[in-house]
């Protein structure tokens, strides 16, 4: 058995004719006298024979392939696929690199335009006037002016009405009547806010008299807002004097009448 061990690893190479001649001779000599190794050799030979059967099948299959034509067929297919791949690459390059800068440029332009419009170009006139000037509807210029004037008159009359009513309320207020004073203060604030919007219209349509009386009313209201929340009898008296001194109610009536007449 010990002697067999020396040869067993070489039996496969021996049957495959892969041993050096001297070693092959040694193995052959051993096989003459060793039945165990002979049995193993027979088994390996049967295995080789089975593999030869498979090789025969392989050769039969290979004989059905046209090896002369296959290279050109395969080469054409490889080239066709490569061309398609290159085309796809070019297409993707076109879409990726040709249009991206253009799209980026457009987006950048839009952003720049938006930024420029928002931060640099500022409207010189109130938005409703700008919109009117930029409007593409062709309307006679004097018609628009008349409409503006009528609107300004209407709003001024309304402002004067409410101011007159408020001043009369102030003149009738007593010191104890604190609730009434608080309500009056709110109304004053509201009228002061309205006056700010009215200024633009008055400037534009040049209603000078109306503007002058509106300014006086505004001045009076501003003074009233600066006084403490609870008006003393003396303060109320001073306000009444101011109103009478300036003949505010009379002037308001006159301007109102004038405006109403010109409106008709």
């Amino acid at each position: 058995m010990n002697r067999c061990h020396k040869y067993k690893r070489d039996l496969v190479a021996y049957l495959s004719n892969e041993l050096a001649p001297s070693r092959a001779q040694e193995v052959a000599e051993h096989l003459k006298h060793c039945s165990a190794c002979q049995k193993e050799v027979e088994e390996i030979k049967r295995l080789f024979s089975m593999s030869k059967d498979f090789k025969t099948e392989l050769q039969e299959v290979m004989s059905t392939v046209d090896w002369d034509k296959l290279p050109s067929i395969l080469t054409d297919r490889v080239w066709k696929r490569e061309e398609e791949r290159q085309k796809k690459l070019v297409d993707s390059w076109f879409y990726r690199w040709r249009w991206q800068p253009l799209a980026a440029g457009l987006i950048f332009g839009l952003l720049l335009g938006a930024f420029f419009t928002y931060f640099v170009i500022k409207p010189q006139k109130p938005s409703f006037l700008t919109a009117r000037q930029e409007s593409k509807v062709s309307v006679p210029a004097d018609f628009i002016e008349k409409v503006d004037l009528a609107l300004a008159r209407r709003e001024t009359i309304d402002y004067l009405d409410r101011s007159q009513y408020l001043i009369l309320e102030l003149l009738q207020t007593r010191k104890q009547d604190e609730v009434s004073i608080f309500l009056t203060r709110d109304k004053i604030q509201q009228l002061l806010t309205e006056k700010k919007y009215l200024n633009a219209q008055l400037d534009d349509v040049k209603l000078l008299k109306a503007k002058a009386i509106c300014d006086q009313i505004e001045l009076l209201f501003l003074e009233l807002t600066q006084l403490s929340s609870g008006l003393s009898e003396a303060e109320l008296e001073r306000v009444r004097e101011m109103i009478e001194e300036r003949q505010l109610l009379l002037k308001i009536n006159l301007v109102k009448k004038e405006l109403q007449q010109s409106e008709v």
Binding site: L47, S49, M50, S51, D53, F54, T56, E57
Partner: peptide, 9 residues
């Protein structure tokens, strides 16, 4: 045998 040797390999 061909089938077997193929599967065994």
């Amino acid at each position: 045998p061909k089938e077997m040797i193929h599967k065994a390999v």
